[in-house]
């Protein structure tokens, strides 16, 4: 959401006319810790991808995984579930 709407620009009842516009909402802003993947330890099992409640982890062509930080809220579930200990949550810095 680059342009912040004024109250005059809203549809009556805040109706949204553009389907799927929630994808423009940067939930990554909520994050205080960021997952960092150690590719050496990762065995590409996909548990992080399976458990991520935001669907913020995507499968790359080479079979490894990456986190979309636009959506990642930093909940740490991926790090908790990873059997290889390949994901570390690190503090976001200003």
């Amino acid at each position: 959401m680059n342009h912040k709407l004024s109250w005059r620009e809203l549809e009556a009842g805040c109706i949204l006319t553009q389907p799927g516009s929630a994808s423009q909402y940067c939930t990554g802003d909520w994050r205080s810790r960021r997952p960092v993947l150690d590719e050496e330890k990762c065995n590409k099992c996909g548990l992080c991808w399976l458990y991520c409640p935001e669907g913020a982890i995507t499968l790359k062509e080479d079979g490894s995984y990456e986190t979309n930080l636009f959506y990642c809220k930093g909940c740490g579930i991926c790090a908790h579930e990873c059997k290889q200990g390949a994901i570390t949550m690190v503090e976001e810095e200003e």
């Binding site: 959401m1 912040k4 709407l5 004024s6 109250w7 005059r8 809203l10 009556a12 009842g13 805040c14 109706i15 949204l16 006319t17 389907p19 516009s21 929630a22 909402y25």
Partner: peptide, 22 residues
């Protein structure tokens, strides 16, 4: 298709209420 009653985070809730009151 439209979305009604969507989530209104702090970025938009105040504007929604002002529009309703006016």
């Amino acid at each position: 298709p439209v979305t009604m009653g969507a989530y209104g985070p702090p970025e938009i809730y105040s504007e929604a209420k002002k529009a309703q009151e006016v």
